[in-house]
């Protein structure tokens, strides 16, 4: 038998994180499933003896350090924990903005700082960091979330540049809307803000991540589906057209 590998999955109580944790558990990984939602975590770990649940706020650096110290070597990180309230920029309480930045951006920093040194020491590992297409294409009511995810992108780019050739593979995954419980709730609440789009199935996003891990390490960004790829390209080469289109689909009438 090959040695058991350990994966740390954040945001593992629902959506992308939960599915990532289950697929890794199915594949025989030891999975450390992290979230704040104990009920959701228990559901993810149900009848999975190789899934271990940990309640932890990724926005709390000390808690993340303590968690990772107790886990032992982590071979893959799937960092999916994030929050994304839909609020107009000037109406969003500052505390709320800080909270989004702490969870979405600093959460990523905390997880990377706790796990990457061990990977560098061992000369290998995989860091899958979830960003969002919103980081390249901010739309109304996503200012704090998009800003935090854009920060994740540049942080991942700098990190990848600093550690090129180290054996640690970094992926910055930028999906468009993903069909998760969180997205469904947001879309039901505010169809205009989510562009009246149907989310892409989470399994498809994770398939794209799996395929990306087989590509050369320098291939940092993962745009999981064709529509996401087209929008990301169009945003670069035809920003005016994209702005007009986004304005149309996100207008409330």
């Amino acid at each position: 038998m090959t040695a058991v590998r350990t994966a740390l999955v954040t945001g593992a109580a629902s959506g992308l994180g939960a599915l990532a944790a289950r697929r890794l558990a199915a594949a025989g990984w030891d999975v450390v499933a992290v979230d704040l939602d104990t009920g959701g975590l228990a559901e993810t770990a149900r009848r999975s003896p190789n899934t271990h649940v940990r309640v932890c706020d990724v926005g709390d650096a000390e808690a993340v350090n303590a968690l990772v110290a107790g886990v032992g070597p982590v071979h893959r990180v799937v960092h999916a924990a994030a929050i994304g309230p839909l609020v107009p920029a000037l109406e969003q309480p500052l505390e709320d903005v800080e909270n989004v930045l702490r969870t979405d951006f600093l959460g990523t920093v905390h997880v990377v700082r706790a796990t990457m040194p061990g990977m560098l020491e061992r000369g290998g590992g995989e860091l899958v960091l979830f960003s969002s297409l919103a980081s390249l294409l901010p739309v109304p009511k996503t200012s704090a979330y998009a800003a935090a995810k854009a920060a994740v992108n540049v942080y991942a780019e700098a990190l990848a540049a600093e550690h090129a050739g180290s054996g640690v593979v970094i992926r910055c995954v930028c999906p468009r809307q993903v069909d998760t419980p969180g997205f469904r709730a947001a879309a039901a609440d505010d169809p205009a803000a989510t562009g009246r789009m149907r989310g892409v199935p989470p399994g498809l996003v994770l398939d794209a991540v799996d395929r990306s891990l087989a590509r050369p390490a320098r291939d940092l960004y993962v745009f999981p589906d064709p529509l996401t790829r087209v929008v990301a390209l169009a945003r670069r080469w035809a920003p005016g057209t994209v702005r007009r289109l986004v304005g149309q689909v996100t207008s409330s009438r």
Binding site: L19, R22, A26, R47
Partner: peptide
């Protein structure tokens, strides 16, 4: 078969 979500847990 990859069982991701089911009453017998995740497995291959």
């Amino acid at each position: 078969v990859r069982y991701a979500d089911g009453d017998l847990g995740p497995y291959h």
